[in-house]
Each structure stands twice: as structure tokens, then as C-alpha cells.
Amino acid sequence: MNQLLKKFPQEIKKILAKYPPDQKRASVMPLLHLAQQDRGYISRETMAEIAEIAEVEVTEVASVVGFYTLFHTEPGGKIRIQVCTDIACALRGSREYLDGLCAELDIKPGGTTPDGLVTVEEVKCLAACDRAPMFQSQMGDELEYHEHQTVARTMDWLRSMMASLRLPESDEPLSLEPEGGDHE
């Protein structure tokens, strides 16, 4: 049973209707976006389901996933922080900002905090060059731009997010100690 089709019959019908009936392949990327917004990443099983809907081989779907940097094959942190460090942002201090933020969270760019809460990624131009340093946050299907950032400002924001965020399988409030260090 195709789980994706079962879960999103209307959405998938809408996606397919955008393209000529003999061009189902064009739905591969919209279907990948749909799946990723649902689960945060794309599994092998999902790729197979998309291949079935778009009438292509699984390897073709996998190659698309591998080519485009926004598609993830592993679950990241609950909050994904994407910092732009392109030339225009770098000229306004985004590299120092990224290094400082990673040091504060004790992870490397691309890494996730041990508690699985925060992933920090270095990304390419987000079209906000005039308001750097900046990052884009992704939480489920929520996406937000944060401009004119400092490490302190971002950490304040993260702490406030933590306070309001609870893991669905637990009643424990998520912790992110202001001092850093212990992320257990």
C-alpha cells in the first residue's frame, strides 16, 4: 500500500493536475516536498512510493534527492537553523556569527545537538544579503527568516523556542541550558 497516496490523496491529485497527463515525472519534486514537509526527511520507502506515483524508477527519485540540497535523507533536529555564509553575508560578519553559534551549541556546521533538538547548517544565498548575518529556521512546515542576528540574539530566540516546545512523546520541557556544556 502506498502510504503517501493513502495519507495525502487530495494533495497528490492537485499536484498531478498541474502537469500534462503524459508528464507525471514532473511531479517528482513536488511529491518530495510534500513528503518532507510531513516527516522532515525522505526515507527509502517514501522514494519508492513517489516513484510509483510519478511512474519512474526508484533510482531516478533517489538521484533527484541526492542532487538537491534541500532534500534530506535523515531526520535532523527539531529546529533546523540554516545560516547563509555567501560572499555578501560574509562581508557583514556571517562566518564569525556561524562559528560563534556553533561554539555556543558545541556542534559543527551540519551537526545536530546530542539531544536532537537543533541542527545548524551552512547554506547558500537566501536572498536577504542586506540584512546579514541571517538564518532561516525550519520547524516542521514552519519556515521563518531571522535577520540582523548576533549569537546572543539567536540563543535568546532558541531558548524561548525551547520553552514553548515539548516533545510529543514526552511531557518533559525541552532543555537548552543557557551556559551550554551539558546537553544530556
Binding site: 514532473a26 518530495l32 510519478a54 519512474v56 531516478e60 538537491y68 540540497t69 534541500l70 547554506v123
Partner: peptide
């Protein structure tokens, strides 16, 4: 989905076609 090259018009078309 995050590929600068897709601003090039023929790469954009490939991308639209699911490639």
C-alpha cells in the same frame, strides 16, 4: 530544492520535468 544552477533556463526546465 536548493540548486543555484536551476536559474540557468535549460537546467530549470530539466528540474521542472523532475530531473
Amino acid at each position: 530544492a536548493g540548486a543555484y544552477i536551476c536559474g540557468e533556463e535549460t537546467a530549470l526546465l530539466e528540474s521542472m520535468e523532475g530531473r
